[in-house]
Amino acid sequence: MKRLELVGKSDVRAREPVPIGDGLVARARAVAEAMFATDEGPPPPKRLDWLEKELRGFLGHAGSSARFVFGASVYAVTLLGPLVSGRLGGFASLDLEARKHVLERVEKSFLSTPLLGVKAILCILYFEHPDAARFIGANGACLT
């Protein structure tokens, strides 16, 4: 049997994503910087730039419902998270150690579900970077 083929030019990967607000991306980046910090410090800025670009592409194609859920989760974690851990001030303005502390507390609080949503998407994207994939020992040709 012959395969289906598309008539026209609507290659799904060439489609333009919906623009994502800079505020949301900045908050997600602040979370990612703390989330993926190692004992040596935060991830390289270039890795976070890559993550930011991927996040825009991911959310831009994900549909309005997914954007809403992710956005609401990021705002919940970054606005309420500092309060849960007894800190004042915006999440992004906290230093790295303080942000890690906030996320640790959030993971054990009533905000654990929104954090799971944020963490899942950031992790899936972050660990697809070739260097990050190598870091976790992912060498399967098909899955990485």
Binding site: F36, A37, L103, E107, K119, F127, A133, F135, A138, L143
Partner: peptide
């Protein structure tokens, strides 16, 4: 996939990253 599996690891920061290295 490994990246999705890493996302299921508890913890943040160095704790998460150490656990993520256990993916294989």
């Amino acid at each position: 996939p490994p990246a999705v599996l890493a996302a299921t690891m508890p913890g943040v920061g160095p704790e998460l990253m150490r656990r993520a290295q256990n993916v294989p």
